[in-house]
């Protein structure tokens, strides 16, 4: 309600914990033997991968292979059980002092998440706010931006995704494609250094997929680092810089999208691609 009280403005004390990537070293994300289980179900079985700055990194694989879970680990919506995960050279969700790991406080985790934008399959727009309010919410509430400044920036973001004429609409009054573009604008308003897309076009009618992919293509051209879980192989081939095929919680195959897609080495990749292509 009052825009005076906002979340932590500066970096919370001791939120450093620089990993072996050292400052960043050209890597936006680095996963080392990441494991994740839900109870007895082992979902991620040692994921190793690196996402370079400015790269469009495509993650493909059959349903249930752990793609969403891995994305959610990157902004600590899920806690990993073993291994190490770094974003921009910093350990996600933990602080390392000597050889001991300390869990971060909620405030510190929230601070890390500010720089990581996430776009969900089901949009998850705030239904009680207009498109403009959706985009303004986090800059005002989290970064403490003045309303006027946040509004100006939100208008800019909505224009960028081609929705200048829909700012006053509530999500229920927008098509799926428009909602997803608002969701992208909402994430961009926080000026993230990394964007995570979890099947952003899977819930859309076929004729609406293009408008969302166009926005993502534009983002890629501007040099945004993006991790994209998708079944749109055309997009991966055309826009992607690297592609990882995941199955049953492990990386099966990786490489340049054109190579992996046209000449898959592993039989599980071949089987999967023959189904989606």
């Amino acid at each position: 309600m009052s825009d005076a009280t906002t979340e932590a403005h500066g970096a919370p004390d001791g939120a450093t914990g620089t990993g072996p990537a050292g400052g960043n070293g050209g890597l936006m994300v680095k996963a080392e033997r990441v494991h994740k289980s839900f109870g007895l179900v082992q979902v991620l079985n040692g994921i190793d991968l690196e996402v370079r700055n400015g790269e469009v990194f495509c993650l493909v694989g059959p349903s249930g292979s752990g793609k969403s879970t891995f994305l959610r680990c990157i902004n600590h919506l899920e806690k990993i059980n073993a291994g190490r995960l770094y974003v921009d050279g910093q350990l996600v969700g933990y602080r390392q002092k000597g050889d001991k790991l300390y869990e971060m406080k909620e405030r510190e985790v929230a601070f890390q998440r500010r720089d990581i934008g996430m776009v969900f399959q089901r949009f998850n727009l705030f239904p009680h706010m207009t498109a403009l309010e959706n985009v303004m919410e986090a800059p005002v509430q989290v970064k403490g931006l003045p309303k006027s400044e946040a509004r100006r920036r939100a208008e800019e973001m909505l224009e960028r995704v081609g929705l200048s004429d829909r700012m006053k609409n509530y999500p229920a009054q927008l098509s799926g494609g428009q909602q997803q573009r608002v969701a992208i604008a909402r994430a961009l308003a926080m000026e993230p250094k990394l964007m995570l897309f979890d099947e952003p076009t899977s819930a859309l009618d076929p004729e609406l997929v293009g408008e969302v992919l166009d926005v993502m293509r534009g983002l890629a051209e501007e040099g945004m680092t993006m991790i994209v879980v998708t079944h749109e192989m055309g997009f991966a081939r055309e826009v992607g810089d690297s592609l990882v095929f995941m199955d049953a919680g492990v990386v099966v195959e990786s490489g340049h999208p054109r190579e992996v897609l046209s000449n898959p080495q592993h039989e599980r990749t071949q089987a999967f691609l023959s189904k989606v292509l």
Binding site: E106, F111, L125, A138
Partner: peptide, 15 residues
Amino acid sequence: GQTEAAQALGMSGNR
């Protein structure tokens, strides 16, 4: 999904 979206934007639990 609403809570997740808010948290992904860096909002605290209270907020």
